[in-house]
């Protein structure tokens, strides 16, 4: 009788105790990870690290080509995924009529979201690098990464559009606005911060992607920068850099982790600190925008 009560007591307290424990342990692992990389890498964090090319001598090596490459790829990816992702989301949410075609598009996007990123690397290698002869260029890298994160933007755009109330659309239609005017002038501005949050979330995913870029052949040792887009002569801008070879921060980190020497591991940890700070910042920005969007929608 007494034992039975004890069993009940353990049983009824299982989820509150185990749940709290599991949550604390998971977040604890995150905490330990951050402490660990910080401990390993903080002493390499200095200006020299940011302004040097990789080198055979660990103390002289830096991430200049890596972070510049990351900036190139990120800016380009943002420009590619924003219009295409948002347009696809608008079509599926506002225009597509329920039926076979819409179902097919939905299953397809949901599947693409689950395709391993390395497969996109194989696609990029054959299509962009070889077929379109882009070589292992910045452009080929950005196009490949865009395909990886495009489903995130499409899904987020649809969610944001779904949150816009019907009454707003009705008000616009009742005034004799057509669908395009209603979408462009009323629905999109209302959904904007939600959509932006999705694009930024996609960026936070893209910045850490390594495998697809390795697969298209992005080099791990680069001691030069892509041609700067700014020129002193008219028209003051050049796209020459798109054709240049590149590396990115996560690839540089991977390269250093793969070496046996401990000094390179410190470099990797320092690179990780920078990568983590940027990707967490981007992620928080996305969450902040999403919360702002949800609040705004509740006010309506």
């Amino acid at each position: 009788m007494h034992e039975e009560k004890l069993i009940y007591k353990i049983r009824d307290n299982f989820f509150p105790v185990a749940g709290l424990l599991a949550t604390v342990v998971s977040l604890g692992v995150l905490f330990v990870l951050i402490i660990d990389v910080f401990k390993d890498g903080y002493m390499r964090l200095n200006l020299q690290f940011l302004t040097s090319y990789p080198s055979r001598i660990p103390e002289k090596a830096g991430i200049l080509s890596a972070w510049v490459g990351t900036v190139w790829i990120m800016v380009l990816t943002a420009f590619l995924i924003f219009p295409i992702g948002v347009a696809s989301g608008i079509y599926l949410e506002e225009y597509a009529k329920p039926g076979k075609i819409k179902d097919f598009l939905e299953i397809n996007i949901s599947n693409l979201a689950g395709v391993p990123s390395i497969i996109y690397g194989l696609l990029g290698l054959q299509i962009f690098v070889y077929f379109f002869k882009m070589d292992r260029s910045v452009l080929a890298g950005a196009l490949t990464l865009s395909l990886v994160v495009l489903p995130i933007v499409i899904v987020a755009t649809r969610e944001a559009l779904k949150a816009v109330p019907l009454s707003l659309r009705e008000a616009s239609f009742a005034l004799g606005a057509n669908k395009l005017q209603t979408v462009v002038f009323q629905v999109l501005p209302s959904a904007f911060s939600g959509i932006l949050s999705g694009v930024i979330l996609a960026m936070s995913r893209a910045i850490g992607e390594t495998a697809p870029l390795i697969t298209i052949g992005a080099l791990t040792y680069i001691a030069f920068l892509p041609t700067s887009p700014f020129t002193s002569e008219f028209p003051f801008i050049t796209f020459q850099g798109l054709k240049d070879y590149f590396t990115v921060l996560p690839i540089q980190i991977f390269n250093w982790v793969s070496r046996p020497q401990k000094a390179f591991h410190s470099n990797a940890a320092a690179g990780i600190i920078i990568l983590l700070v940027i990707s967490l910042f981007i992620n928080f920005l996305a969450i902040y925008l999403r919360i702002k969007f949800e609040k705004y929608m509740r006010r309506r």
């Binding site: 995150l30 660990d36 936070s204 992607e209 982790v257 990780i272 983590l276």
Partner: peptide, 19 residues
């Protein structure tokens, strides 16, 4: 919790190998 999914995988690789 979502931060666990945001950490780049190369960082997890480092953590697995060296910690």
């Amino acid at each position: 919790m979502e931060i666990l999914a945001v950490v780049p995988t190369v960082v997890y690789g480092y953590f697995a190998l060296l910690f």
